[in-house]
Design a protein around this nucleic acid. Structure first.
Lengths: 357, 357
DNA sequence: AACGAAGCTGTTATCGCTAACAGGCCAATT
DNA sequence: AATTGGCCTGTTAGCGATAACAGCTTCGTT
């Protein structure tokens, strides 16, 4: 014997009006006498009435829920982006439904998109910065409102991105300014657009300085792959500076260096990417490129709501939302001048290390 | 001019049946002739029909979306739990809607719960292991299906938890077995139930061994707070073993030790909690307690679906849902015997360190 | 042969809202 | 005084499904 939930007609009766007037008040429509409006709101309060989202969506042909497709929400970047999106969406009065990709291929994206469509979401944000995912977006019915993070689907749908190229440029220029002439790169998976952008920024910056880019070493964002890359680099004698594709790989790499008696930054300078919360407390504290994921989330929602309101995907209206978020360089202690004062007293030498053996 | 979406009646017409028969086929009801069923399914395929979730929910008075209330989805634990829940929910045919808490107090939980209720979720998982959140759960209308992670709301709603006490016990026993007689603890925030459980396990294990527990040092899960705790401990001379409340704090603490020339594990042994993916690649690789978040997610969904199907919150049916997930000890190189062979060649001494000064 | 009990299908009513239209009222215009 | 056009409000139809009931077969039984 469960009590019937309060519905709009109950409010209408209590306020002595029709249910349509209640609807008008709730949807902030004009043309309701202030006194009536107040009476309705009072009834709403008194009954603790909450409109039924499903009925509302069914009648109005729109829902107040946005979908987010993401891959590996444990990675710092996607997790932080998801949080930013969720907060921005909530501020705009929308709920957020998530669908995580188990596979990262075309079908995986299609199926995740389908799962969200089945929940009648009003629009979708896709955080799946792989080439395959970007391709899958193009197969999406154009009636679906969508924006992508870090996926330039050929202008098919709006894309919000951090300026990876410029971030990589900052990292490399920082190392060059310290006197390093050869900058290695441990990249993310080649099918990730971020990885591609960072490779491009790294390579072009070296090129602009008249330097050749060595072969990039491929990782998979994980600390484990950074460790593997570190082992490879440790076996060479021409390594003084490395730009890692993200902080986790930098962490793993520094572990490998440590095991081989290679000192950071005295022997090798390391720059990461992301500025994870732990970066400041690694040994040594990591110089890295910070991305503003909250800003990414905010711009995603702003762009998505615009698409929803227009009823049409906006085509290249880049004037409205600047799609590129600028990252910033955070200098800590994992970078030092090439052959700079080798002993203590040099430039930002980091904390003293003691021998352990 | 947008094309009308395919609805059930379209399928019915194409298959030459009534819409109700289509509904029966789609809901796997019996009493449909196999030939008819096949005809309907063929029509569904041909039109690429997808049922409208809102209409379905409105008519059937139930939705296929579950809500998750979480705090700080960037923290490893909540993020991993969320992922586990999402995957288990999808496997059960449910979508997942998230609401992140901006504030961690009573009102924050109530408002997040309300936001989810407005989306007509069928049930809610609350990942908000604070005492305040647990209290808020009790104010929830009992008609709402809900389960909590790590929050024993006095048996009001089912709770899925990792056995924090036993995890802490493993950590401390490991340190005791290495000969340490005084084990410090850097705890999480006191209002987090996990933090309380780990403190309890730590204290009782020491008690069982006839040892007194020093005053725990309070952190906030962040590497920064671990660093601060590390500075405090570094100023003492009676520190040989520390059990950190999580891996991030262990990381920050080790950084502080490093800056003060305190070697891990030669001078101080450190145990963390969580086994974040990076733990293996810290310097030194971190001994820690692993939690199985996927299992937590699976049990959450299982319990929640049971509540939904019963139509009533199950009261203390702990026999049905095994409430405690057992963590495991992962031994790496941040722990060593007390005063064990002080030089190289000792037991798991970790990689050699070189002087850097 | 007649009967009830299944099995299969269709018709109608609802779910709780918003959209569209249809008024009633009152001030401002002709 | 009659007409116009805003305001405000109510009535009636849907939205696209499921629930409940009813009707028609087709069996197996007595």
């Amino acid at each position: 014997m469960r009590e019937r939930p309060v519905v709009m007609i109950d409010v209408a009766r209590l306020a002595g009006v029709s249910h349509q007037t209640v609807s008008r008040v709730l949807n902030h429509q004009p043309n309701v006498k202030p006194a009536t409006r107040e009476r309705v709101l009072e009834a709403v309060r008194q009954l603790n009435y909450r409109p039924n989202a499903m009925a509302r969506g069914l009648a109005g042909r729109r829902s107040r829920v946005l979908g987010v497709v993401s891959f590996d929400t444990i990675l710092y970047g996607p997790a932080a982006t998801l949080l930013g999106i969720e907060q921005a969406a909530r501020a705009a009065g929308y709920g957020v439904s998530v669908a995580t990709l188990e596979r990262i291929d075309h079908d995986g994206v299609v199926s995740a998109l389908g799962a969200l469509a089945d929940q009648s979401v009003a629009g979708v944000v896709v955080i799946a910065p792989q080439a395959a995912a970007a391709a899958a977006l193009r197969t999406m019915p154009k009636s679906t409102a969508a924006v992508a993070v870090e996926a330039d689907a050929n202008g098919e749908i709006p894309a919000i991105s951090v300026d990876q190229v410029s971030g990589a440029r900052m990292a490399v220029e920082h190392l060059l300014s310290l006197g390093h002439r050869k900058v290695w790169h441990v990249s993310g998976p080649r099918d990730w657009l971020e990885a591609q952008g960072r490779i491009e920024g790294w390579r072009s910056t070296l090129g602009d300085a008249g330097l050749a880019a060595p072969r990039p070493i491929a990782g998979d964002w994980s600390a484990r792959s950074g460790y593997a890359a570190g082992l490879e680099l440790a076996s060479r004698d021409d390594v003084t500076a490395v730009f890692a594709g993200n902080d986790q790989m930098a962490l793993g790499m520094m572990r490998a260096f440590h095991e081989h008696g290679i000192r950071v930054p005295a022997d090798v300078s390391v720059v990461g990417f992301d500025d994870i919360p732990e970066a400041e407390f690694l040994s040594p504290p990591l110089t890295t490129i910070r991305q503003d994921f909250d800003e990414v989330g905010r711009r995603c929602i702003a762009a998505l709501l615009r698409v929803i309101d227009n009823g049409q995907p906006e085509r290249l209206t880049h004037s409205a939302v600047d799609p590129l978020v600028t990252p910033t360089l955070v200098v800590r202690q994992s970078t030092a001048p090439l052959r700079g004062a080798a002993g203590p007293g040099g430039m930002t030498p980091g904390p003293a290390l003691r021998a352990t053996g």
